[in-house]
Design a protein around this nucleic acid. Sequence first.
DNA 1: GCCACCTTGTTTGTATACTAACAATAATAA
DNA 2: TTATTATTGTTAGTATACAAACAAGGTGGC
Lengths: 164, 164
Amino acid sequence: MTRIESPIVEVDGETPADAARRGRKPAESYVLEEQVGFLMRRAQQRHIAIFQRIMGEDGPTPTQFAAMAKLGGGEDISQNQLGRMTAMDPATIKGVIARLAERGLVERRPDPDDQRRVRVRLTPAGLEAMPGLTEKARAITAATLSPLSREEAERLLALLARLD
Amino acid sequence: MTRIESPIVEVDGETPADAARRGRKPAESYVLEEQVGFLMRRAQQRHIAIFQRIMGEDGPTPTQFAAMAKLGGGEDISQNQLGRMTAMDPATIKGVIARLAERGLVERRPDPDDQRRVRVRLTPAGLEAMPGLTEKARAITAATLSPLSREEAERLLALLARLD
DNA sequence: GCCACCTTGTTTGTATACTAACAATAATAA
DNA sequence: TTATTATTGTTAGTATACAAACAAGGTGGC
């Protein structure tokens, strides 16, 4: 029963890939660990853990910081538009902005020119927090990519950018 | 006010990268769209959309299928162990298994040798569904990677695997 | 002006995901 | 054996995400 457990995946003495190659024909094999969706989910889990560690307990979440980064110059942006800029649908951005507003980092105002719109911007406190948060965000990116060389990291980013 | 909007990101006439290069020093720039976390989130969003399209309205979700794939041989696996094999923490795998059980695809039994454990396995209906689902899962992987050549896809998978 | 359509934002419901705290059971060390 | 520690599973709380249905405000065609 000797076994080596990697952090999460891998439980038995044999690799899933081994099991697949042993018992099944190649055309019928399906190895979860080799699927792009599984690998992306794992990589994201690690990234989010790094994000939370560096931003700290009451720091913003990844999506919260994404919204703040887009508001970083002090601009006024409508809620839905901000959602499009940060890849969040209207229902998601609503919650993100509500939580940032609860924490006093952004404020919402009705748009005088279009009564459907809610304009969102950083509060003075939010604006003041940005330099420190941006510094941490750079450290998060570096830590996430730290297993790779500079060239490998650039290659990864280029490939990921094409999957959209 | 002429503008071209790409699916989600990109709203103004200028690229965020342009804006950063124009007004700020390189050392101070932070371009959300170039960060690995943002790119991974976008790539995952697209992957999940493909997953749902191919699996269909009442097909399993990605995590539900991951659990089923690990149970695919008809084995008995404890709930927490199954979570480790599929990169889900105990609280997450509990919900996934509960929903699979509601749909009659898996069943839970107490472990006779360890009263703490819940053993999970596919039901006959779940076992019967696997070949068709696995076929679809392969199509999902192919569709997700379709913007890339074979070599590029392999390179991406290798790089992602090192981020864990 | 009127009507059809589009956009904006909200609400509800489902499904991940993780943290923290907890209870019950096993395994190990003293 | 007893005491400590570890493992297993649950519950509650927070935060994404998205679909679907909806209301209200703009916009363009006629």
